[in-house]
Design a protein around this nucleic acid. Sequence first.
DNA 1: ATTTATTATTGGCTAAATGCCACTTAATTG
DNA 2: CAATTAAGTGGCATTTAGCCAATAATAAAT
Lengths: 245, 245
Amino acid sequence: MYTSEKDYLKHYNIHNYDVPLVSVDVAIFTLLDGKLHILMVERGDYPHKGRWSLPGGFINQQQDKDLHATALRKLKEKTGVKAPHLEQVTTLGNANRDPRGWSVTSLYMALIPYAPTAEFIAAVVDARWWAVDIALKQSLAFDHADLIAQARERLRAKAGYTALPMYVLNAPFTLTQLQQTYEELLGVVLEKKSFRRKFPVDELLEEVGEGLPEGGRGRIAALYRPRKGGDRYIFLRSFGAGEDF
Amino acid sequence: MYTSEKDYLKHYNIHNYDVPLVSVDVAIFTLLDGKLHILMVERGDYPHKGRWSLPGGFINQQQDKDLHATALRKLKEKTGVKAPHLEQVTTLGNANRDPRGWSVTSLYMALIPYAPTAEFIAAVVDARWWAVDIALKQSLAFDHADLIAQARERLRAKAGYTALPMYVLNAPFTLTQLQQTYEELLGVVLEKKSFRRKFPVDELLEEVGEGLPEGGRGRIAALYRPRKGGDRYIFLRSFGAGEDF
DNA sequence: ATTTATTATTGGCTAAATGCCACTTAATTG
DNA sequence: CAATTAAGTGGCATTTAGCCAATAATAAAT
């Protein structure tokens, strides 16, 4: 049929094929008032105009050198910053999730402290932080409730064996705040001594002075911020008892 | 611009947009002669005609109800069976991985025992099991060496805290064989007593009689096969010391 | 100035899990 | 019947985790 790879490529045209839609959606999490929040945007265009959805959109083949770059671009458009952690959660594709037809979306999860984003996000008229529990009860666009649940579950799972929870905290923070963040993300109460024994403070945190705990009462606490590269750390033993299945 | 969602959809045509290619590739692993092997196929068409690649291809929008179904279809086409474990590893997309243009592929990993596939695969002329180490040294199609490395790494990681290694073994198998499989996948030597204490035999395996160990010498060993649902089991503590970073 | 309340940090004991190695058991081979 | 091979178990020292209480350092109240 074709005489060479070059000849084949000359005749190739993607528009001769049945191709699915491809998008990237980003679940951006932070901690606000001790509760996990997620950034949502109100859709300004069809389909699902007016509904709340995850920040996301299509690949820009000129601008985006890879999928990760697409996710990073969406993240920056809505928060103004580069998150300290961004990872792919999963990719979903089926015939029904988008009224325009067979559609594939690659779901990313970003973790970010609240403070440095607050001003920028306040200026983005269609974007808003929602408590995750509340967001899941809304009538969201597409299958985004499902996407949020999957990203939330990934975050919960990784809170068990990584230091990722530190990336939703405003630095500097105390070890007690860090423990409370683990407890919020895992949904369990942890024992103070065990937590401090297990969390590798020296390796993953940098001490940046001392300060009063929240509420301004009690003994002065050591303050920390995350060290570089801590998002790749994996604990040998996991936090939180956790049911096996 | 549009007066309603219906109006919008009437005018929507995906071919007016710059869309990437979307494919699904499957890294199918088994254990053969104590070594991890992967199923490769020789490409019969351009691009990269004649090179070895992972089994994979495009979504069939009529046949495949979702991405997982596409992966399952590719798996069955080459092995004739439904693997006891199939999961998505990651999704890669960039402008350079395919000479036809911006391309996205969703990588799946399947685990399968060798024996039930042997006859079928022997009849598929373009398919062959390769030892993973050897396969990685070939000049493979596209970025498939990278895909294999990522699937291999996911398998190695999960061998540390799941029962997945049992799915590459021909049943029935002995606990010693299972331990050796963990050792091969993890790349470390495990202590017999610790392995047997930690692996939840009663929950995850079903005893199916006794038999001589491999080689036909020594005390008779208990024989097992995997129980249903064991692929969702997660160990609280991981196997193999493992460097943290 | 002293006491009380509050929170951080550390000590110490018990129980559970792991690493290590040797022992016992049950088969084949010569 | 002894030697060999491999499965399965016992036992102890070490490490880790759970629990709770003691001590330290601050603000607020008296």
